[in-house]
Simulated scan of single mutants.
Amino acid sequence: MSDFARFAVKLTPGASLDRIDGWDVDAEGRAILKVRVRARPVEGEANAALLKFLAKTLGVPKSAVTLQRGGQSRLKMIRVDGLDDDGVRANLTAL
């Protein structure tokens, strides 16, 4: 068991409210979490809002959630320290 989880997120900025739209699958069969945030994609605001929202949703400190890839893309790779993959899925499925 690892002490971190890593997962892909498809981010939609400029939404009417921050919310998780559930899991999807990309062309290669990998799971992707669909997330909407109110922040606009200006000067990293949407990325910051995504990390803060995921930390609050998963019940971990903001410092535990990092953007590993995709700073300028809608498809992002997120790392969450302190939870494993099963812990992330359990927390998000409970919503």
Score class of each variant (00 low, 15 high):
1 M>T: 07
4 F>M: 10
4 F>I: 12
5 A>Q: 02
6 R>Y: 03
7 F>A: 06
9 V>W: 00
9 V>R: 01
9 V>M: 02
11 L>Y: 00
11 L>N: 03
11 L>A: 03
13 P>E: 03
13 P>Y: 01
14 G>Y: 01
14 G>N: 08
16 S>A: 10
16 S>K: 12
16 S>V: 14
16 S>L: 09
19 R>A: 05
20 I>R: 05
20 I>A: 04
21 D>E: 10
21 D>T: 11
21 D>F: 02
21 D>S: 08
22 G>H: 00
24 D>S: 14
25 V>W: 01
28 E>A: 14
28 E>M: 12
28 E>R: 14
28 E>V: 14
29 G>K: 02
30 R>T: 08
32 I>W: 02
35 V>C: 02
35 V>S: 00
35 V>Y: 00
36 R>D: 07
38 R>N: 05
38 R>V: 15
39 A>V: 03
39 A>H: 00
40 R>T: 15
40 R>D: 15
40 R>Y: 09
41 P>N: 08
41 P>M: 05
42 V>T: 10
44 G>N: 04
45 E>W: 04
46 A>I: 09
46 A>N: 06
46 A>H: 02
46 A>P: 13
47 N>Q: 03
47 N>H: 00
48 A>S: 09
48 A>K: 08
49 A>H: 03
49 A>T: 13
52 K>R: 12
53 F>A: 04
53 F>L: 07
53 F>D: 03
53 F>Q: 03
54 L>T: 05
54 L>E: 00
54 L>S: 02
55 A>I: 14
57 T>M: 05
58 L>A: 02
58 L>D: 04
58 L>C: 06
59 G>Q: 06
60 V>W: 01
60 V>R: 00
60 V>N: 03
61 P>D: 05
61 P>C: 05
61 P>M: 04
62 K>L: 11
62 K>F: 06
63 S>T: 13
63 S>N: 10
65 V>I: 09
67 L>T: 15
68 Q>K: 15
68 Q>S: 11
68 Q>P: 13
69 R>I: 13
69 R>W: 07
69 R>F: 05
70 G>W: 02
70 G>L: 05
72 Q>N: 11
72 Q>T: 11
74 R>Q: 10
76 K>M: 01
76 K>Q: 02
76 K>R: 08
77 M>P: 14
77 M>Q: 14
78 I>V: 13
79 R>E: 12
81 D>H: 09
81 D>M: 08
81 D>V: 11
82 G>C: 07
84 D>A: 14
84 D>F: 06
85 D>K: 12
86 D>M: 15
86 D>P: 09
87 G>S: 09
88 V>I: 12
88 V>T: 14
89 R>Y: 07
89 R>E: 15
90 A>P: 13
90 A>T: 15
90 A>G: 09
91 N>Q: 14
92 L>W: 03
93 T>H: 11
93 T>L: 13
95 L>I: 13
